[in-house]
Write a protein that binds this DNA or RNA. Structure first.
Lengths: 188, 188
DNA sequence: CGGGCAATCCCAATATGTTGGTATATTATC
DNA sequence: GATAATATACCAACATATTGGGATTGCCCG
């Protein structure tokens, strides 16, 4: 249910916003980014989530890391302060990265390959691309069915397969995917 | 005329992204955000810009603050490290703010009132833009209500007004509108 | 030949969004 | 001080999307 989602645990609202913006724009199937406090890590039952945590809090998280990882979560410690380096205190459970776009991208790629049902390569069939295009153009399933001369059930089946293949669950996500892949017009 | 533009001088790409996202989404007429290094402050001939600089660099900037301000620029020092507080070393030329959404919003309001010819060309209210942004990010009405601490009815009302004002009825349409207006990130 | 895949169709239950109302408090603006 | 805009909240009815099944046909390929 929560695959493709991410949690940010960081005290800085600017960094929250920045990480969120980076995660959502990478087209890696992350459609939901929430902000949490360290305590939530213990209380919650997150599954298959990408947890990005300020190194400031990573000690607290580390105590529960085994359980968190057993639930399919991936923990990434974000180190933003250049003069306060915790990266040496490495752990098998938490991957520490510096505040650097390259390492963040690298981490996201790892996340991609590690979470099996988030697919990066798009192997959409011809029909699926037709349906996706029309979804991004704002047509309802009923309208798509009418225009493609198929039943609404078939459209729904195609959409199930599209969301499964792309790992993108929301209509806005699919729309931006379509725009990024030139399936719909998008000027400047 | 560069009015409505802003410069970010910060070493952290996450904070760059976060500030950019915050500035663009606030509907205060800022349409262009660029990233610069401290040296650019001296070399450049910026006019009427909102310059948001890491306090880490503010000493360098302060030397040239008089000239920079004479050109109509406004300098804001951003302090993100809680354990490294420079806010006491106040200056008339640089307004220091902490990494806190309220103070940042306050600062942006001041910027608005200070720069008279920056007008919001957007017909949407601040709250409507918040809602639209979250819609385009794939959040459900329920999720939006939760994150904005308002009832789902209010979210629905805002959405009614948004669709009425913009004349865009579909979620994909709103998503592309948001992407075109830099409310959501859309790279490459 | 048999397995996999694409395309098609169907159902039921649940979740979510849309439409068209009404209504109040606060804040701007004239 | 009146008026407009904004933000908030509620309801009922209806429309649409999502989820989790199941199923058939034709086609390609090893």
């Amino acid at each position: 249910m929560q695959t493709g989602n991410s949690v940010i645990i960081h005290s800085s609202p600017i960094i929250q916003q920045g990480l969120k913006s980076i995660l959502l724009s990478r087209n890696i199937g992350i459609t939901d980014v929430m902000v949490a406090v360290p305590e939530d890590t213990v209380l919650n039952t997150w599954k298959n989530m990408l947890i990005m945590v300020d190194t400031q809090f990573s000690d607290e998280i580390k105590k529960h890391a085994k359980v968190i990882k057993k639930n399919g979560n991936r923990i990434v410690g974000i180190e933003t302060a250049v003069f306060f380096n915790k990266l040496d205190s490495c752990s098998d459970d938490i991957l520490y990265v510096h505040d650097n776009l390259d390492t963040i991208n690298q981490t996201l790629m790892e996340y991609l390959s590690g979470v099996s049902d988030v697919k990066s390569d798009n192997q959409l069939s011809h029909r699926e691309i037709e349906v996706l295009t029309m979804v991004a153009q704002g047509y309802s399933n009923k309208q798509i069915a009418g225009q493609l001369f198929i039943s609404i059930h078939t459209v729904i089946t195609h959409r199930k397969n599209i969301t499964f293949k792309l790992g993108i669950k929301s209509i806005p996500g699919l729309t931006l995917y379509a725009a990024l892949n030139n399936l719909v017009d998008f000027q400047r």
